[in-house]
Nucleic acid binder design. Structure first.
Length: 130
RNA sequence: CAAGCAGGCUACCUUAUCGCUGCUUCUUUCGAGAAGGAGAGGAAAGUCCGGACACCAUAGUGCAUUGUAGCGGAUAACAUCCGUCCGUCGUGAGACGAGGACAAGUGCAGCAGAAAGAAUGUACAGGUAAUGCUGUAGUGAAAUCAGGUAAACUCUACGAGGUGCAAUGCCAUGUAUAUGAACGCUUAAGAGCGGCACGCUCAAUGUUCAAGGGUAGGCAGAUAAAAGUUACUGGUAACGGUAAUUUUAGAUAAAUGAUAAGGCUUAGACAGGAUUCGGCUUAUGGCCUGCUUUUUUA
């Protein structure tokens, strides 16, 4: 089991992020939203993921940092389900769409459900192709 | 004890598990792994001043524009800081102050008053060819004698070029001209150049030679500095000098978190570096010191 979240698994390329926002699909489980797309990645990893919190909802940098940390932590603990299931590589972007500062418990529950929904969605998308 | 004034310090801690970003050493199947050690603030914030640094001319001259303004000092520099005088406020500890000049010119001015400067006149007296021509009274802080006002123009002294690390330099990739050099043409218009003028540099098209630009990526800039601590020393102080000693974030879609348990003033406020320093301003939990006033007690 791999609970690490090293540099290689972070979404960094500006090109990938633009592609993600223009062509990506999304699933959401309040207060989280996941934008994803199947793409080739510069590094040899299953998924590259990034997190984002809009400045509009949270003015203070401290709050934004905290939410991003919580999201990264929840992803780190539960990403293995995804890694073990998917066959192609994906780019992820997690957005926080709530308006209140959450607790880790809320984020963790939402993250588990969100990743499950993502797996269900990709499974149905891939079935007709086969 | 209460109310208040001034200043300083600090910014939850401990353990376990998982995890993040650099650094050093070792191992390596060159993918990486292991160990050690380091890892946000007093305001990192607002971006309000002043520097360093980079490029544009080693940023020059005049005007315009604009900043500062008792006096003396500190400093790389400042609108900051220190000392001091004066003024205002406060019982006081203290706080605050755009505190140079109305000795050149222009402007502005409530009430009262005929009239506050280009306009006119009341009463009494004097005087004249005639006239507010002269004096006194009257209004007012101030009456053809001037005064007040410069967070009014202005004057004086000193200062200010512009753009900001997404600056700037280099590397690889790579396609076709928006690049560079030389020659030649022109001396008009234009660009750098930003309010204007001067001045400086470049310079259409063409020929030859050389290699670039956009876009995405990497490296440098980029963390050792007007640095901290201690001792001695000069100075009322800000601050300076000498010696010893320490190394203290360096990311780039952006690192400090999560979970569990325990403790404490019982959920610990305000709040997250982004080229970097000195200030100012604003937000804010706790603790300590000195002082003032009133009352009580001795």
């Amino acid at each position: 089991m791999n609970y690490r979240f090293p540099k290689e698994e972070k979404l960094k390329s500006k090109k990938c992020i633009e592609l993600l926002f223009s062509e990506g699909s999304s699933v959401s489980k309040f207060p989280l939203k996941l934008i994803y797309t199947a793409t080739s990645l510069p590094k040899d990893v299953p998924v590259q993921a990034g997190v984002s919190v809009t400045k509009r909802r949270f003015k203070k940098a401290v709050t934004r940092n905290r939410i991003k940390r919580l999201m990264r932590e929840a992803y780190r603990l539960h990403k293995n389900d995804v890694f073990n299931t998917i066959s192609t590589s994906y780019a992820f972007m997690f957005l926080y769409i709530g308006k209140q500062e959450p607790t880790f418990e809320e984020i963790e529950k939402s993250m588990i459900r969100l990743l499950q929904k993502f797996l269900e969605r990709t499974a149905t998308e891939n079935t007709p192709l086969k």
